[in-house]
Nucleic acid binder design. Structure first.
Length: 550
RNA sequence: UGGGGUGUCGCCAAGCGGCUAAGGCCCCGGAUUUUGAUUCCGGUAUCCGCAGGUUCGAAUCCUGCCACCCCAGCCA
């Protein structure tokens, strides 16, 4: 990642450098451990960006490990999608692993802890266990089953494994300290009974290790040197260390380092909320272009490069933060500005008739595909009597500093001629239907010294292809500081607008996923549903626009 | 009220006792422009949660306080 070299050093890099110096680490190994229970979103992208780029930065490797210790919540459905998204972002994992690959070792280590007198089988019910745990300010009490003999614990644990007990009947708990000020250390459950078919191990097991027990073991087995995760696991670090130490893993033990997760303005980032949006049909699916999921951003038109650049700029730190979506948009514009072909599309058309041209008179004009890179060629188009221009580019009664077309006014039609508005017609409703103008043959593009203030994009009616456009606004409206409403109440009713207009002929043949800049209207991406018969374009992001009507 | 964290410009974020507190986003000027885009110049914290203290000197060290986040799943 040469992109990381230019960034200032973050605290994780400093820790890793320190560990390399102090522990003599030869190979840095990280892991990205998603639970396969949903689609990846840009918050996950931050996590995996950190995991992969830290490894790469130090010449190490990063494993992809599906954290599948809870069969009730997970599904293979998501495994492939997650792999796809990671590759799409441009990262390659070293080993592909499943937490469930280590169930045998987890079991053996649980037995080891029992033998060491560091784990016991508890018969307390869920409610009793909560009661015994104490509260934030009061210490917990020991379970009456805490002092069972090693033999009895072993016998019970084997029988748990063999399916003798119902779900919830017993748990295996680490014997640590019920009076610990850190609640996570008050004899946490490390194994629970769950008669459930696992998507990876089938019916081999009916007991499954808890995250707090399984994760450090998985890390240690894979030789992970740095286990990077988000802030909420900070209080679990003592338990993480307790497990690796008491399970007798050799040095160097993996080190857990926590960072703040990503939040973006005007959207939600938790799987729970995103799932609601999908299930309650507020969006069309996980890949709705308004979603912060990677599949959604992809469909919207985001490039992996823009997302990585954004993550780099947003930085890595421990302070809770909400990054302005404007930063994400900026990164996309910057990327697409450098490579998206400039094309013509009219989102909301009105007719423009060039009165001093004949019905079948056409002039050939030329457009650059990408002005800064002439080597990428040009396209030809026809300029004729009947054209389309953008409805908002004509005003009967223009505001101050309106550079567009107005009665008696002049503008250049980009790539063609300067035209002067002569008159206009409205329909019954009073809306402008047709604008009339005359063109000045002496002002052909590239052969004319005369300047006018405004330049409009246009399409030749004869050649224009009907197309649909999806224009997006933020999914959520801003919340007031004391806004206690459910986030659904803050959904932006105008987050999606459909427009029907025209595009130039070449765009009908665009392939879904292809991105363009539509001159003066923004960056667009041919949608999944785009076909030659029904071209559909999603606006990824608009152009910056300093024109404002006051 | 227990434990663990965090507080530097509207939003991110550098800064690790010593030049006038990086940079990016946003915003505002101005130049160039056949995209009101791009590009290009220029501007925007005498101040670092607050209050004391140490020091020749502190955002950086110490003390106290305040605010916010996380933890009481047999979720991850």
């Amino acid at each position: 990642m040469e992109e990381l070299a230019s960034a200032p050093k973050n605290f994780i890099e400093e820790f890793i450098e320190q560990d390399i110096a102090e522990k003599g680490l030869l190979h840095i190994r990280t892991r990205f451990p998603p639970e396969p229970n949903g689609y990846l979103h840009i918050g996950h992208a931050k996590a995996l960006f950190i995991d992969f780029s830290m490894a790469e930065k130090f010449g190490g490797t990063c494993n992809l490990r599906f954290d599948d210790t809870n069969p009730a919540k997970e599904d293979v459905e998501y495994v492939e999608a997650i792999e796809y998204d990671i590759n799409w972002l441009g990262f390659q994992w070293d080993k592909l692993c499943f937490g469930s690959d280590y169930f045998d070792t987890c079991f053996d280590l649980a037995v080891l802890l029992i033998k060491k007198g560091l784990a016991y089988v508890d018969d307390l019910t869920r409610d009793e266990m909560r009661e015994y745990r104490g509260t934030l300010t009061e210490p917990g009490r020991n379970s009456p089953y805490r002092d069972r003999s090693v033999g009895e614990n072993l016998d019970l644990f084997y029988r748990m494994r063999d399916g003798e007990f119902e779900d919830g009947a017993r748990t295996l708990r680490a014997k640590i300290d019920m009076a610990s000020p850190n609640i996570n250390m008050r004899d946490p459950a490390i194994y629970r009974i769950r008669h459930f078919t696992h998507h990876h191990t089938g019916d081999k097991w009916c007991i499954y290790p808890m995250y707090d027990f399984a994760h450090p073991i998985q890390d240690a087995i894979e030789g992970i040197t740095h286990s990077l995760c988000s802030l909420e696991y900070e209080a679990h670090r003592p338990l993480y260390d307790w497990v690796t130490e008491n399970c007798d893993f050799p040095e160097p033990l993996p080190r857990q380092i926590e960072f703040a997760r990503l939040n973006l303005t005007n959207t939600v980032m938790s799987k729970r909320y995103l799932r609601r949006l999908v299930e309650e049909n507020h969006v069309s699916g996980w890949d709705d272009p308004r979603m912060p999921t990677l599949c959604g951003l992809r469909r919207r038109g985001y490039t992996p490069e823009a997302i990585r650049d954004f993550l780099l700029r947003a930085g890595i730190a421990k302070a809770d933060s909400v990054v302005d979506t404007a930063m994400l948009e900026h990164c996309l514009r910057e990327d697409l500005n450098a490579r998206a072909f400039r094309m013509n599309a009219i989102l909301d058309p009105i007719r423009l008739v060039v009165e001093n041209m004949g019905e079948s008179e056409y002039h050939e004009v030329e457009f650059e595909n990408l002005p800064d890179r002439p080597e990428l060629g040009t396209r030809k188009a026809r300029f004729g009597r009947e054209l389309y221009i953008e409805r908002e580019d004509f005003a009967i009664d223009p505001p101050k500093k309106y550079f567009r077309l107005k009665p008696e006014g002049e503008v250049r039609l980009k790539g063609a001629y300067i035209v002067r508005c002569t008159r206009y017609e409205t329909d019954e409703a009073g809306n402008v239907a047709t604008v009339y103008c005359t063109y000045d043959p002496e002002t052909k593009s590239g052969e004319c010294e005369r300047k006018v203030k405004g330049t409009l994009h246009w399409l030749c009616a004869k050649d224009a292809v009907p197309a649909g456009f999806r224009l997006y606004e933020p999914l959520l409206l801003d919340a007031a500081e004391d806004d206690a409403r459910d986030f659904i109440e803050r959904l932006n009713p105008d987050s999606l607008k459909i427009a029907r207009g025209f595009v130039e002929p070449a765009l009908a043949k665009a392939t879904p996923g292809e991105r363009f800049q539509f001159i003066r209207t923004g960056y667009f991406c041919a949608d999944l549903e785009h076909t030659q018969d029904a071209p559909v374009f999603n606006r990824a992001v608009g152009l910056k626009d300093s024109f404002r009507v006051n």
